[in-house]
Design a protein around this nucleic acid. Sequence first.
DNA 1: GAAGAATTGCAACTGTGTCACAACTGCAAC
DNA 2: GTTGCAGTTGTGACACAGTTGCAATTCTTC
Lengths: 146, 146
Amino acid sequence: MVRLSRPTLDDLKTQLRASNLRATAPRIAVLRCLHEATTPVSHAELAEKLAPDGWDRATVYRNLTDLTDSGMARRSDHGDHVWRFELQNEAEAHSDGHPHFVCDECGDVSCLPEGSVEIRSQKGAPARLKERVATIQLKGRCERCV
Amino acid sequence: MVRLSRPTLDDLKTQLRASNLRATAPRIAVLRCLHEATTPVSHAELAEKLAPDGWDRATVYRNLTDLTDSGMARRSDHGDHVWRFELQNEAEAHSDGHPHFVCDECGDVSCLPEGSVEIRSQKGAPARLKERVATIQLKGRCERCV
DNA sequence: GAAGAATTGCAACTGTGTCACAACTGCAAC
DNA sequence: GTTGCAGTTGTGACACAGTTGCAATTCTTC
């Protein structure tokens, strides 16, 4: 997922208000971190990163779920029992989104291009499977850990 | 995953010893439950099911991980922060295994036929993706929850 | 049957995620 | 600029899945 430009403070505030969320300091901090992240980030990572600024663990958690509920972020669990968050890409917002690849070894999570995984109708498969799938996740060894 | 016949006590003992595991009562009970299960089972479900027999939660946990480590079972996390276990199918042991479908709504986990999900080499996708994938998971609404 | 190693039961612990509630604050209306 | 108040925050406590240490027990081998 590519971020073309670093958003200004005003950009972030506008984004939040457009989603009916108040532009509070901790919320802006959380949103900014998501903008800066190149891969999905966990609650814990973000809480730790923001702790020096005085923002509480629970506040970070709540803001992440707020952003998710409002559709600005996407939440996923990549199999290591930790929720990870990333900004919702506008272009993907109304599609199935892209598949994720999670490394069993290093835990690294990366985004795969849309279309790199195909769901096929097959005998034995449940009806209308493809239409019902919302997210796709692959696990294995990443290129560095092979 | 289809179990053609219910294994006898001796079958189970033999299976365990073949994997260098002692055939203890709780371990046999765990293995039998996995044989009887039609979908992946969680630690907690199994521990609860076996509690009346007097087997301890930690013992069930340890046995599940033992079976997994020895290759008899397969462990997966389907996005609800719970490990689920199922028997490792011989035929799948050295392949990617079958994909799983997890319902966002009711949390139900079901097994999909192998081949119902295809990984395609595509521009933008990482090299040798297909070879590196160990497990595949789809999430969405199940047939009952649509 | 005895010895030794693997396994068990218990209880305490870790870490992620949630919640209730009182105090605070952004922001829209005046 | 001030005010009112719904939305938000910090705190502390909690639920839950999963893990660990250790003494007691049990399986396997000889």
